[in-house]
Write a protein that binds this DNA or RNA. Sequence first.
DNA 1: AAAACTACCTGAGTGC
DNA 2: TGCACTCAGGTAGTTT
Length: 271
Amino acid sequence: MPELPEVETTLRGVRPHLVGQVIREVVVRHKVLRWPVSADIHSLEGCKVEEGARRGKYLLFGTAAGTLLIHLGMSGALRVSDPDTPWRKHDHFALGLGSGKQLRFHDPRRFGAVLLVHGDPAAHPLLAELGPEPLGPDFTAAYLHARCAGRATAIKAVIMDSHVVTGVGNIYACEALFMAGIHPAMAAGKVSLKRLERLVEAIREVLAASIEMGGTTLRDFLRENGEPGYFKQTLRVYDREGEPCRVCGTAVRRLVQTGRSTFYCPACQKR
DNA sequence: AAAACTACCTGAGTGC
DNA sequence: TGCACTCAGGTAGTTT
């Protein structure tokens, strides 16, 4: 499910319900997600949520007992619920809040993570090696050019590598490459600085536009209030195999790169 | 060092 | 209706 826009949408949705609230209760209904839920997670009980932030696709909620780190994986979602709402299958974790509401973590595939991190979260192994934020000032064409230099790896794989730039997943990698007119299988080291400038701009533009629309609901992503995101209708190539390119009418093609589907227009995107 | 592959897990959809 | 199979928004870890 979630790439950066969906995580940001989730953050904006849950933050007003969380920040300033005391955590009355921590409910662990399934102890192991991608990793075991931190054994000391109950030490959050009685703590106030002081802040809510995002780093890449990680959500960070700061408290006196440490930082609650949540990753949504492929199928995770957070939802603010009334406590008398019946638990759904795959509701694995929840916080009972002073407001009387519950924040529930739902994740059928259990690729997500719920961890309590002590000390500076930026120093945590999961966060320390992440690349710059794509919407921040450090993600520039010069930076990307340096990271691509000499690499034979496909440009698509490079922009999906969270250690190069964080938050760009399969949907937005396909979309941004289309917008920049770059063939997804092109060797990263062969893409000119000028074209990388367009790519950086395209990544920023597509992520910002999707955030504006509440993210992309492909199958099951829902916001904290149960509403879908509306960016799917704006997708240019993703999940549109065989359909006409919105620019030139050529049929959109699908290819498989490192086990993931890539969608592209063979006429608009050149090597 | 970089590139390719594996693993984790459930559910939806397809074809027989 | 059921079975076997493929595919799905992520990414750490292992192997080549």
